[in-house]
Design a protein around this nucleic acid. Structure first.
Lengths: 242, 242
DNA sequence: CGCCGAGTTGATCAGGCTCAACAAATGTGG
DNA sequence: CCACATTTGTTGAGCCTGATCAACTCGGCG
């Protein structure tokens, strides 16, 4: 590939020459941090993939609150509503400088007609997102804030984490508000929880970046309740299993 | 079509003869109420569509709680992980007697190669589900139980509602526990809320079915807080936009 | 060096979960 | 067809997590 070292899901399983061809057709664009890649409600005219950087898909609620639907990593397809001539359902915001590839939806559709594998690749990405959303729904329904926060951070590590000498770093700014929007909580609550972990040396912050010194310790939050009482709450939600 | 009056999303946009062909290849099966259509964790070998009836996709959490990921209506594709040789991520339970069509994943894939429109149809269904999940995530993050319940019921009406002389009926049993699992709440809370509406004549129950006498009244819950104080809570979640 | 947005932290309070006991409805057997 | 068993729904009391409000601190940037 004549490109970055990322693997573009959209092109998987295609003959190298074909992939090359499709890649050549892409519109390439640089988007700076905090700029919009696309806007909720606008007609979706193109299918998007990041070549580098990272972006978040954000939905604003009528009441002014925000929900971060997803952090997009390089290689992942987003904006696929374009294939159906729908509208973008979210804002896409670059969290650091990105290189973005775009294909006009019309073009992708004709490409799919010739190489249906492309459609399967899109289906794969959508399925993965659906699984992820199901998981988040489950968490939001049943888990306390502390667990949801731990999961969110572990997920960020898994997807974006870079090993440094200080620990694993998330290579873009993630504010407390971002984390709150990600787990359906509030800034003060996230701050408190995170602060506790910070004093326990599990996590720190260096120049606007999140650095996780002890990933295992964060994971452990999910199993043993951190400190307080040994009484597990929220147990009796359903008396008998089917 | 040689079939029920439902429209199968999977076959949209295909030549009638082609659709007929694919339909003929389907494995047809009757599933009784409360029986499993497929089981979470098992390898997904087929793509599914309901010809009639209704099913729920249910995930069990380790702690024994359940989450209803989705109610499936006739014509909708489910079990699409099969296309990628994955595992079913949920249980699928018939909520009333269903007629189910199945296509072996292998077969669907070859069919997609010939008629890529089928893949686009799957993508359409997946996108719709993703939008739905995003909405639920938003609700779960920001809305009180009462609103979530109203939304869930309105959605059920929209998808499955049948007009009767008593009002709009959901044509299969929906327990309080089901509703709780759907909105991420608990049986007692749902019961209380629903009871309040029942005494206000917005909703009743007749032989295990939910009957909504006054749909507008339920919708109104979303705008004006039902009874209590006129003070809207959860307003200050985010001070300034953007 | 002082400003400004982001983060910290305390105090307060309430939505809704938990526990628990009772009532209603559905199903079963005599 | 009625009595009992089992499941589902109702309702009360109490409490806890986490939201809200608000004041203050920190850190980066002009």
């Amino acid at each position: 590939m004549s490109d970055d070292a990322i693997t573009i899901g959209l092109l998987q399983g295609l003959e190298p020459s074909v992939a090359e061809d499709l890649l050549g057709q892409a519109q390439r664009r640089i988007v700076h941090a905090d700029e919009l890649l696309f806007t909720a409600g606008h007609p979706a005219r193109a299918v998007h993939v990041l070549a580098s950087g990272a972006a978040k898909l954000v939905q604003a609620t009528p009441s002014g609150a925000q929900v971060i639907v997803k952090y997009v990593r390089p290689g992942e397809v987003f904006g696929s509503p374009a294939l159906l001539d729908k509208f973008y359902p979210t804002n896409a915001v670059a969290v650091i400088e990105c290189v973005e590839l775009q294909w006009p939806s019309q073009y992708v559709r004709t490409f799919i007609d010739r190489y249906p594998q492309v459609a399967l690749n899109v289906i794969g990405d959508l399925e993965a997102r659906l699984r992820e959303m199901e998981g988040r729904l489950r968490d939001l329904s049943n888990e306390p804030v502390e667990h949801r926060l731990a999961r969110a951070i572990l997920k960020l590590i898994d997807v974006f984490g870079l090993q440094t000498d200080e620990g694993v770093e998330i290579p873009f700014p993630v504010s407390r508000q971002d984390l709150a929007d990600l787990i359906g909580s509030t800034l003060p609550t996230v701050s408190r929880t995170l602060r506790a972990w910070e004093t326990q040396r599990q996590i720190k912050r260096s120049r606007r970046r999140l650095v996780i010194a002890d990933v295992e310790a964060v994971a452990k939050v999910l199993y043993q309740d951190t400190a307080s009482g040994p009484k597990s709450r929220r147990s009796h939600r359903r008396s008998a299993g089917r």
